[in-house]
Write a protein that binds this DNA or RNA. Structure first.
Lengths: 346, 346
DNA sequence: GTTAGCACTTAACACAGATGACTGCTAAAT
DNA sequence: ATTTAGCAGTCATCTGTGTTAAGTGCTAAC
């Protein structure tokens, strides 16, 4: 347990360092303390904080820098989140007030706004129910010229479609029969179950109607996969440049591909509980991200599930400011999406 | 008109400089010349080449560097394109041999391959006919729960779709009536004409069937716009980093947004004639690109139109190598796409 | 027309102090 | 038992200087 004065000192070190990026020394620190103590006293305290591992220094005569443990302590105990700026809030509301054609557009746009506000990289994940989505229905729409569009609708109102080509002539009535068969067998079932049943139960049935079902089956599989993997979006990828010390492309490329891999990236931002969570450097269990922190916040769209927004920045980021922004944003986004769903889905 | 020796010297300067990035001096140059002359002679020739503006130097005692005019002369008169590497060709054929769901995927993948081969940034444009595409037909598919999908099919087999929401209850028969009306009036007409007629002729008609047609009309407009703007793809955006001297983010950001603006970027790569064209630095009529060159090559898919592939690199890029790659690639891509169309559209 | 030779220019590099912002420690003051 | 002043020591950063190497232009001889 730290004394009040030690806490104050740690807090100032983190605040200063995240703002300026310059290691903070005893003299500058003592002048910022609300109580009057000499720099020598501060030095003694700093020696103690270093001993218990909350701060370190780069070389023997440099100022102090928070360690990972120091950031953690700060985030858990010392930080009071700045409420979001009024102008930032205006900007959010403004950007979210346009006409959107689908949920995806809102979530994607959110990533862009969030990265603009923070000047970091932002990740956003669509709302999802806790349980796997359920197949609403399938459609097959003949488009002429051997083309058919497969459409899949889930119970949480996601629509996925894909066009495929079919050999030979396939009348609309035959397609209808296939659709009826599939819906009879699969509608109302969770998607993961549908995926497995597709191969075991459906393929043999399809063979009764269609001679060469490869492209049809492959398409069904594609849309199912698409509907059941969680879509997420990135905004401000370029900002990585500005806060990565090592401006070397060979260092950045793997990070970019990490971010662009749906499964990998979702892992980092999914584990968020109900509100805001902060993961710092090595806590992220990926060596590439050891100098980065991720702040995630979940947003709640009631019966339509929960989504996640996240900011990826350097470990030395102004946590209270960013947390304030993420918190303000997730509330606003919840509101916006509830509205959106309510408007169209009752 | 340059003498043969002057041409040789200019050629070596360009070759050397594009390879090494280091200004080339008289001594190194003389040792590379096939005829034996001393460095002093080379210096005299270089002074002349500088006088007529084909080369410059960075400071009074540095080696020579090609000027924009020098590159232009080289590209027009001196360059003999390297035929594409066998291994590169293998890599292209390999990457294009997978299963693709649509043309767009192939064109997108092409941008990635091309950027990998060159280590520069690649842009690709879908094949397009010379004339504006013609509206094949419209569909409106009710998906239940107030959702309707609008589908547009053009004569060059492009399919565009979008889901929208509709207030109140709209029976399938009413939708069918709207669709029939639209197709009667507009099918077979070029898209630009369709776009203007939509507002003048169609909206009043729609009002007969639908009370609140806003979202429907807006959606029709959206899909029409989407079908008539040329889609293009970018590969290897990150590579910009590695060949931009000024590694400053404030310098790169506008270039990225330039590239991501469909209209702007398409302008640079569309003007290509039948084969390969090279645009160097200031010739690109955009100050942001004054240190870059673009090599475009068009590919031909017979009756389905022509597309463009392009490589964006630094003005000092190894033109003969890149031109060889672009040329090899466009041939391969033509073949692949002809196959693709033939297979599905007869 | 070509070449050798020479004086001159410049970027790049390395090295040596000087500077300044720190720290840790000690001994005196509170 | 804290707190403080004072001081020696450390280290990154900056500045100035000399050196090197590559390259040029010019001139006079070939």
């Amino acid at each position: 347990m730290l004394t009040e004065r030690e806490k104050m000192i740690l807090k100032i070190i983190v605040n200063d360092y995240t703002k300026s990026g310059v290691p903070v020394g005893s003299k500058a620190l003592s002048s910022q303390l609300p109580i009057h103590v000499s720099s020598a006293t501060v030095r003694n305290e700093m020696a103690f904080l270093e001993e218990i591992g909350l701060i370190t220094k780069n070389h023997s005569s440099s100022g102090r820098v928070p360690s990972i443990e120091g950031y953690r302590y700060y985030v858990d105990n010392l930080l009071n989140p700045n409420p979001i700026d009024n102008s930032d809030m205006m900007m959010i509301q403004n950007s979210l007030s346009g006409r959107f054609r689908q949920i995806d557009e809102i979530v994607q746009q959110s990533a862009d706004i969030l990265s603009n506000l923070t000047n970091y990289t932002a990740l956003t994940l669509k709302p999802e129910q806790e349980t796997t989505p359920i197949l609403g229905s399938f459609r097959l729409v003949p488009l002429g010229n051997h083309k058919v569009m497969a459409i899949l609708i889930t119970d949480n109102d996601e629509v996925v479609n894909q066009v495929f080509h079919i050999d030979g002539d396939l009348g609309g009535d035959k397609l209808d029969a296939v659709v009826r068969m599939i819906n009879d067998k699969l509608a109302g079932k969770p998607l993961d179950e549908v995926i497995t049943k597709l191969k075991t139960e459906i393929v043999p049935e399809i063979l009764k109607y269609v001679k060469n079902p490869d492209s049809l089956v492959q398409t069904l599989d594609d849309v199912l996969m698409q509907a059941s993997t969680n879509q997420f979006y990135i905004g401000g990828e370029l900002n990585l440049l500005s806060f990565t010390d090592n401006n070397d492309i060979s260092y950045l490329k793997p990070i970019y591909s990490l971010l662009n891999d749906t499964d990998d990236a979702a892992k980092f931002i999914k584990s968020s509980d109900n509100s805001i969570s902060v993961q710092i450097g090595p806590e992220l269990s990926n060596d590439l991200l050891k100098d980065y922190s991720i702040i995630t916040g979940s947003y709640d769209v009631g019966p339509y599930g929960k989504g996640v927004i996240a900011v990826l920045g350097p470990t030395r980021m102004p946590y209270s400011r960013v947390i304030g922004i993420v918190d303000g944003f997730r509330n606003e986004l919840s509101k916006k999406l509830r509205n959106y769903y309510d408007k169209y889905n009752q």
